[in-house]
């Protein structure tokens, strides 16, 4: 290939080849680094799941679900912790979801760029990522100190506060996706605004709203720090909301730090249960959302 026959500027093939190879190498390197990063991320997830199964299955048996927590050396299960978690999670979600729904509706339907709407949206985003330990301290100041005692009620309230911003975000996102034509049709038929929202918009995004509520439940089911300062934990059977109430995360926290092998094994079983539950809810929520959209 004779390049000297051509006049004017021409490509230096050697240099071009070198540059091309270098670019290809960089691209290749980045490809492998990105693969490595993904594999690393997946490896961590795998390690967590494997550890949970390996350690958690040791103490797994039917008694875990049928027997309450017992002193070390006496066997026992996690029934009161599971029930306590269920109760506080359900009540927390039951209180937080409607409030979050209304706020999300406000942001999507009524605020329309007003300063108040922007402020509410901003605050809700802050609350979404605020440290949950601070929510626990806040409820401790509000509902534990004045009443002189820890209670399942205070625990539920702390969880409700965590639920609210999650539901606000998903509600607003869902409602803004509704096509204008749907709203116009409702209004054209004579519906007042609130009926349009409640009877047309909500059902239209029902699966999205359910997903939001499910994700919120999954989030609060695993929260420990807020419950440490509010419902405290209870190693006996109790469903009295005005007294300290047990929950799975707090029981795991207590057991994992104890010196007793059977308690530690049960702690791992509890950890396995929570993780399976939370992951199941997450996967179901995603499947529901994908089916509808």
């Amino acid at each position: 290939m004779s390049t000297t026959l051509l006049a004017g500027p021409h490509k230096d093939l050697a240099a071009a080849g070198q540059l091309g190879r270098r670019r290809k190498r960089t691209d290749s390197l980045m490809f492998w680094l990105a693969m490595a990063a993904t594999v690393v991320g997946l490896l961590f997830l795998l390690s967590i799941l494997v550890t949970l199964f390996w350690r958690g299955l040791e103490a797994m048996s039917l008694t875990v679900f049928t027997d309450v927590t017992r002193p070390p050396g006496s066997g026992g299960g996690l029934l009161n912790a599971i029930v306590g978690s269920l109760i506080q999670t359900m009540i927390g979600a039951a209180i937080g979801t409607p409030i979050g729904l209304l706020v999300g509706t406000y942001l999507s339907e009524y605020s329309a760029g007003s300063k108040l709407g922007d402020a509410v949206r901003f605050v809700s985003d802050i609350l979404l990522s605020a440290p949950s330990i601070l929510i626990g301290l806040f409820i401790y100041q509000l509902l534990v100190l004045p009443f002189g005692g820890f209670s399942g009620f205070a625990g539920s309230m702390a969880l409700a506060v965590i639920v609210i911003p999650i539901v606000v975000r998903t509600t607003e996102d869902m409602l803004t996706l509704i096509p204008t034509a749907l709203r116009e049709a409702a209004v054209a038929l004579g519906a007042p605004k609130w009926k349009m929202i409640v009877l047309v918009c909500y059902p239209a995004v029902r699966s999205g709203l359910i997903t939001g509520a499910l994700l919120a439940v999954a989030r609060i089911a695993g929260e420990t720090a807020p419950l440490l300062f509010t419902s405290l934990g209870n190693l006996t059977w109790s469903i009295d909301m005005t007294k300290p109430m047990g929950s799975l995360p707090v029981t795991i926290y207590t057991y994992a730090g104890s010196p007793y092998a059977d308690w530690i094994a049960l702690g791992w079983t509890g950890a396995l249960l929570i993780t399976l539950g939370v992951l199941a809810i997450n996967i179901i929520a995603r499947v529901v959302l994908r089916q509808r959209s």
């Binding site: 017992r70 002193p71 070390p72 050396g73 006496s74 190693l235 006996t236 104890s258």
Partner: peptide, 9 residues
């Protein structure tokens, strides 16, 4: 705590 729990039971 462990002995109180045992005694309680």
């Amino acid at each position: 705590n462990p002995i109180y729990q045992k005694w309680g039971e």
